[in-house]
């Protein structure tokens, strides 16, 4: 056995899946809550989605220890930014910050796939997705993690209308309403839970709404809770909600 083979491996994979979908004036970011190693379920509740600011939510997936440490470091940088500038960091700036932080560890990377969701300064919903070393882009939707290969094609079909013909004389809608987005998210995770052993137990769906958005459509959502935050924007500002649902535990 060579020394190479015996070397300590500082990484592992902890399963789970995350996704985010941007709407016109909202963004939905979701993740399951199962943490596993190999065939063992370590816990049925380990959050992978975190509030960063009143208008930004980060989902992390991959090696859980790196993920938790990375989120803490991002949160710390955002706190320092607030102390220095007396405002919350804009979403596009958080995205660039994350790329810088990931790339700084290019040669001993955080083994983590990040999806950042929230509201841009212009009020639009936005999703940024990253690879472990910091490559990133803004997208309308993204899935990552264990069941990425199951969920992303479904999203491509349902959000980007890939392989779908537009209704005669019409065009595909540019943005979907929140209600439809939520049912796509739930379907994605119930589907992933059925077909992937590392997905299940619980589902956490974060909803970030733009400032002055009429949130009447939220009232119909079961188990909706507002996430307490800084409320820098006041009553009219961006708001974050969370919906917690059960997934199958087998």
């Amino acid at each position: 056995m060579s020394a190479q083979e015996r070397r300590f491996n500082p990484y592992t994979e902890n399963g789970g899946t995350i996704l985010a979908i941007a709407g016109q004036d909202f963004t939905v970011i979701a993740g399951d809550t199962r943490q596993s190693e190999g065939y063992n379920i370590q816990t049925r509740y380990a959050p992978k989605v975190f509030r960063l600011t009143d208008k930004a939510v980060l989902a992390v997936n991959g090696f859980a220890a790196d993920g938790n440490m990375f989120v803490q470091k991002v949160q710390q940088r955002l706190e320092w930014y607030q102390h220095a500038h007396n405002k919350e960091m804009p979403l596009r700036a958080i995205a660039r910050l994350i790329q810088t932080m990931l790339y700084a560890k290019r040669f001993f990377p955080y083994y983590v796939y990040n999806i950042l969701g929230g509201i841009e300064d212009d009020g639009s919903g936005a999703v940024y997705s990253f690879d472990p070393v910091g490559s990133y882009e803004r997208e309308a939707c993204r899935a990552a993690g264990a069941a990425q290969s199951l969920v992303q094609p479904f999203l491509d079909n349902q959000i980007y209308f890939k392989n779908q013909l537009p209704p005669s004389g019409g065009a595909h809608p540019k943005h979907l309403p929140l209600k439809e987005v939520l049912s796509l998210v739930i379907d994605s995770f119930t589907g992933a839970t059925e077909r992937h052993i590392e997905v299940g137990d619980g589902l956490e769906i974060y909803i970030v709404t733009a400032s002055k958005r009429p949130n009447a459509d939220l009232e119909a959502i079961a188990n909706l809770k507002q996430v307490p935050g800084g409320f820098i924007g006041g009553e009219d500002g961006e708001k974050i909600y969370v919906v917690r649902r059960e997934l199958k535990k087998d």
Binding site: N40, T43, A46, A65, N68
Partner: peptide, 20 residues
């Protein structure tokens, strides 16, 4: 590895298979 989690029941090592 620095992996952490909290749970109502925990078993490490071989215990993850037998005791958990």
């Amino acid at each position: 590895l620095g992996t952490t989690y909290q749970s109502p029941t925990i078993a490490t090592g071989f215990g993850a298979y037998i005791a958990q």
